[in-house]
Computed example of a mutant assay.
Amino acid sequence: MLTDYATIGLFFLLAISFPLAALGLAALVRPRSYFNREKMMPYECGVDTKGKTWVRFKVNYFLYALVFLAFEVETIFLFPWAVKFNCLGLFAFIEMIIFLIILLVGLLYAWKEGALEWY
């Protein structure tokens, strides 16, 4: 039983030592000083920024992304279910109907709140 813990401890030490070794090696080989000040200046796509660099984005962009992710998860769950549909039986069918109803309620809520309006 103690050998099992020793194996786990060895893997834990290896998991800790590899990232630390990589960071230490990177610290040894990185350049210590920058000769060119231009390298340290921020830029956007190779063009110098003009004006204010912090721009506020509408929350709707993030809401679109969240709704998209919700329906991506739906397809990830629906595909294997559809492949094995004949083998699963009535219980799996009812569970998937409940899952789809929950997603439909989420879609209707997002629609009601205006999360799908693009303006």
Score class of each variant (00 low, 15 high):
residue 1 M to H: 06
residue 2 L to G: 08
residue 3 T to F: 08
residue 3 T to G: 03
residue 6 A to H: 06
residue 8 I to P: 00
residue 9 G to Q: 04
residue 10 L to M: 06
residue 11 F to Q: 02
residue 12 F to M: 07
residue 12 F to H: 04
residue 13 L to P: 01
residue 14 L to G: 14
residue 16 I to R: 06
residue 16 I to W: 11
residue 17 S to Y: 12
residue 18 F to W: 13
residue 18 F to G: 01
residue 20 L to C: 13
residue 23 L to N: 04
residue 26 A to E: 11
residue 28 L to Y: 13
residue 28 L to E: 13
residue 31 P to V: 08
residue 31 P to A: 03
residue 35 F to G: 12
residue 36 N to D: 15
residue 39 K to F: 14
residue 43 Y to G: 10
residue 43 Y to M: 11
residue 45 C to K: 11
residue 45 C to S: 12
residue 46 G to Y: 00
residue 47 V to H: 05
residue 49 T to F: 04
residue 49 T to D: 09
residue 51 G to H: 05
residue 52 K to N: 15
residue 54 W to H: 14
residue 59 V to P: 01
residue 60 N to T: 15
residue 60 N to L: 03
residue 65 A to V: 08
residue 65 A to P: 00
residue 71 F to I: 04
residue 71 F to Q: 02
residue 71 F to C: 07
residue 72 E to F: 13
residue 72 E to N: 05
residue 73 V to R: 10
residue 76 I to C: 07
residue 77 F to N: 07
residue 80 P to L: 09
residue 82 A to L: 14
residue 85 F to Y: 15
residue 86 N to R: 15
residue 86 N to K: 15
residue 87 C to N: 15
residue 88 L to V: 03
residue 89 G to I: 05
residue 93 F to H: 11
residue 94 I to V: 15
residue 94 I to Q: 04
residue 94 I to C: 08
residue 97 I to V: 15
residue 97 I to R: 10
residue 100 L to M: 12
residue 101 I to A: 10
residue 101 I to L: 14
residue 102 I to D: 01
residue 103 L to N: 13
residue 104 L to R: 13
residue 105 V to F: 11
residue 105 V to G: 00
residue 106 G to S: 10
residue 106 G to Q: 05
residue 107 L to F: 15
residue 108 L to H: 06
residue 110 A to K: 04
residue 113 E to A: 14
residue 114 G to T: 01
residue 115 A to K: 09
residue 119 Y to N: 14
